Amino acid sequence: MQANLYALGAIALWASLASLGVSLTHVPPFLLTGIALIIGSVPAWPFVLRDPSQWRIPVRTLALGVYGLFAYHFLLFIALRHAPPVEANLVNYLWPLFIVVLAPVVLPGVALRLPHVLAALLGFGGAAIAIVGGRELSGTLAWGYLPALAAAFIWATYSLLTKRVAAFPTTAIGLFGLVSGALSLLCHAVLEPAVALQPRDWALLAVLGLGPLGASFFLWDKALKLGDARHIGILSYITPLASTALLLVVSGRPFSWSIALATVMIIGAAVMGMRAR
């Protein structure tokens, strides 16, 4: 139960990502990610100043953290630039399904039962309805779908592999974010135009960094350390649903049948997944 609460905390923060992103669409994505990830690492700094050994982790573990935080965002931004964004986001949200089906492959002693698979598929169906929202999907074939698929695979395998490397303190997530943020800023310097940020931009970036690109990763790590990856993966389908619902509230648009149906499907998937012991 405690693991599920940590996971729901991360999901709640990720749900605000789209709404904050709408207010920061004028900020180049790598600049936005780089600044937010570095800000997101700040809560770990006091613990590291008190005990520097918390960031003395094996290079392999640091590489895994950068693989998860930097490579995921890098590929997702490439996908959103080279494929229709709704469809690319839909492909990206295969990651909870990947967590469920890959758990027995990556984690010793974990078995996959039919209810887990059915719950994951039902959850993905609900996520798809929430993301698409009744719109007609583009039939365009775009190479950008490949990096979206790779991003989904990376986040799923990063999440699972954190349980395979040597145990590390959750404060090490701050180091993952700091290094990944620096790499994102390097990508910005090479690939994106320079922009001047206003005080409001910095305030929103601080909220983004301390929440969906900061505290969420610490909560996610705690959830994975304490819980069953299969159940957490199914719960993760709440993210696109909550994100879409929050966008509707912020924009003042009415709720639609698609949100109601997605809610029923995702809650049903979560209940089915929790009962599959």
Rank of each mutant, 00 (worst) to 15 (best):
N4T: 03
N4L: 13
L5V: 13
G9W: 02
A10L: 09
A12E: 08
L13P: 00
A18I: 03
A18H: 03
A18Q: 08
L24K: 02
T25S: 14
F30M: 07
I38R: 00
G40F: 01
V42Y: 07
P43K: 01
W45S: 08
V48I: 15
V48D: 11
V48K: 04
L49G: 09
S53D: 14
Q54A: 10
R56C: 10
L64P: 01
G65P: 07
L69C: 02
F70D: 00
A71D: 07
Y72Q: 11
L75D: 01
L76G: 01
A79W: 00
L80W: 10
H82Y: 15
H82E: 11
P84H: 09
P84D: 10
P84V: 09
P84R: 03
V86M: 11
V86A: 12
E87G: 07
L90D: 00
Y93F: 14
W95E: 08
V100W: 00
V100T: 04
L107Q: 09
G109S: 12
L112P: 01
R113D: 10
L118Q: 10
L118W: 08
A119H: 04
L121R: 06
L122G: 00
G123R: 00
G123H: 01
F124L: 08
G125F: 01
G125E: 04
G126F: 00
G126A: 04
A128G: 12
A130M: 10
I131G: 02
V132H: 05
G134Y: 14
R135A: 15
R135D: 15
L137D: 06
L141K: 07
A142H: 11
A142W: 06
W143M: 02
Y145H: 04
P147A: 03
L149K: 05
L149G: 04
A152W: 01
I154H: 01
S159H: 05
L161N: 07
L161Q: 12
T162Y: 01
V165Q: 05
V165T: 12
V165F: 06
F168T: 01
P169N: 11
T171R: 02
T171G: 06
I173T: 09
G174K: 01
V179I: 14
V179Q: 05
G181W: 00
A182D: 14
A182T: 15
L183C: 08
L185E: 07
L186A: 12
L186P: 11
H188R: 03
H188A: 06
H188V: 08
E192T: 09
P193T: 10
V195L: 06
A196D: 11
Q198M: 11
Q198I: 10
P199Q: 10
P199H: 11
A203C: 09
L204H: 05
L204K: 03
L208M: 13
G209R: 03
L210C: 09
W220T: 02
W220C: 09
D221V: 08
K222S: 14
K222W: 13
L226E: 14
G233E: 03
S236A: 13
S236D: 06
S243P: 06
L246F: 11
L246T: 01
V249F: 15
I259S: 14
I259T: 10
I259A: 14
I259H: 15
A260M: 12
V264Q: 13
G268K: 10
M272W: 14
M272L: 15
G273A: 15
G273C: 13
M274D: 15
R275M: 13
R275S: 15
